[in-house]
Structure formats: C-alpha cells, structure tokens
Simulated assay, not measured.
Amino acid sequence: MALITDDMRDIIASAMLSYAATTCPDGTPNLSPKGSVRAYDDEHLIFMDIASPNTIANLKANPSIEINSVDVFKRRGYRFKGTAELLQPGHAAYEWLNSWLLDLNGPGYPAHQAVLVHVDRVLPIDSPAYTFGGAEEKELSDTWFSRYEAVHNARAGQGSVGEIQ
C-alpha cells in the first residue's frame, strides 16, 4: 500500500524546505531544515547530507526521524514518521537524488551521503483556519501569498513591514 500520495509529493515540492527532527544523545530534540527532501517512491523520502553533522550523528545513534513538509501558502502539509538509513555515493537512491541536485543547483554543494527514510506513518498538518474558520484552500493560499509578497516588497524598500495587515 502506498503511504506517499501524489498530494504529499506536491506538498513536498511546493514547500521547497522541509524540517527533519531527530533525537540527540541527551534526549533533546534536533530540528534541521532540509532543502533536498523528495519522495523517492511510495514508501520512502530521501534527502542529502550537505551540512548536517548533528542530524547524521543522531541518526547513527537512533535512526528514528520525523520530517515535516508544509506549503506555507496552502497552510497545510504532512508529518512523515519513519526510520532512516544512510546511503553512500554509488547507491542508486543516492545517485538519483544527487543527479536532481546537480541539475537544480549545479556543482559546488558537498553531497556527503543521502538519508533514505522508510515512512511508517503519515499525519496531516492543517491550519486551524480549515477546522475552525471554514476556510477554503484557494482563499488561504491567496491571502498568505499576499502577506508574503507584502513582506518581501517591504524588504525591497517598497513599504514597511509594519504596514502589513
């Protein structure tokens, strides 16, 4: 049975930045942004270890991981819970992701190893606006896009962030 649906793939792609949560040896959480998360197949996510020494050290000690991907405009996403496996250059999944990264960014990023996550469980992340406000996705997406646009325009000298409603 496929755990990773087309909608989940779309959210991961539109989010462009996901967050990986691991557990440090002292039991505290480690949350790390990942710009290379992709759905590898119907049961696995994958991301590249580019600058993730703490994440990798934590996964070597405890392979449990959660990855959150949220489309900031749609105000919804998914929590992917699973178990990580470290893949070295030469592994087919590593090469697949590395090829995508090279096409996207060109050379220059150190791709040390890939992290393949076997997804055991997926939970939705939804804004309370859907539950309590009865909002529609298009309405939320348009509203939040306008808010982000206003912030970026203010930073570009086209207004003040304080003016954002």
Rank of each mutant, 00 (worst) to 15 (best):
L31M: 15
Y78P: 09
D142P: 07
P33Q: 10
F145Y: 14
E95Q: 08
H118Y: 06
E163H: 07
N54T: 13
V115T: 12
M48G: 01
E95A: 11
D120F: 00
A51T: 06
H152D: 13
A135V: 11
A57F: 08
F73D: 11
E136L: 10
N54A: 09
V37S: 08
R76P: 01
E136R: 14
G157W: 04
A21D: 04
Y109A: 12
N153A: 15
I4H: 10
V115W: 02
T143S: 11
L97C: 09
Q88V: 14
S18P: 10
G108Q: 06
R75A: 14
R121D: 12
R38M: 09
Q113I: 04
T22F: 06
S36R: 07
L86Y: 02
I65E: 00
E163M: 07
I50A: 00
N68M: 11
L3T: 06
I4C: 12
M16C: 10
Y109F: 11
I4T: 09
A2G: 06
E85P: 04
D6Y: 02
Q113C: 13
A114Q: 03
P89R: 02
A135F: 13
D6I: 04
S52G: 03
P124C: 01
V70L: 10
P33Y: 02
I50W: 00
L101S: 03
S127H: 03
R76C: 08
V70A: 03
Q158R: 15
E163G: 15
G133H: 01
T55F: 02
D71S: 04
I12A: 05
A21T: 10
S52W: 00
P89T: 05
G162N: 14
I11Q: 03
D10K: 15
D142C: 05
F80C: 14
V70E: 02
V122Y: 04
A129Q: 05
P25E: 14
D71W: 02
S69N: 03
R75W: 06
G90A: 11
P107D: 09
A111C: 08
Y109P: 02
G27D: 12
S32D: 04
D41Y: 10
W100C: 08
P53Q: 03
M16G: 04
A114D: 01
G159N: 11
D26V: 13
S52C: 02
D120M: 01
D10W: 15
R9Y: 07
W100Y: 07
E149R: 15
D10Q: 15
H112R: 07
K138D: 14
T5Y: 06
L3E: 01
T23H: 09
D142G: 11
L123N: 06
G90I: 10
Y40T: 08
N30K: 06
M16H: 11
R155V: 06
Y40F: 15
T22Q: 08
L45F: 07
Y40W: 15
L86W: 02
H112G: 02
P29M: 11
K60A: 07
H118E: 09
K60N: 09
S160I: 07
S141G: 07
I125P: 02
A39M: 04
Y40N: 13
L140G: 13
A84M: 05
N153H: 12
A15R: 09
D7W: 08
A156D: 15
Q158F: 11
F47C: 00
R9H: 08
D26I: 12
G82H: 08
A13Y: 07
Y19Q: 15
A154I: 04
D142M: 11
L101H: 03
A57R: 12
L101W: 01
A114N: 06
H152A: 14
G35P: 15
F47Q: 01
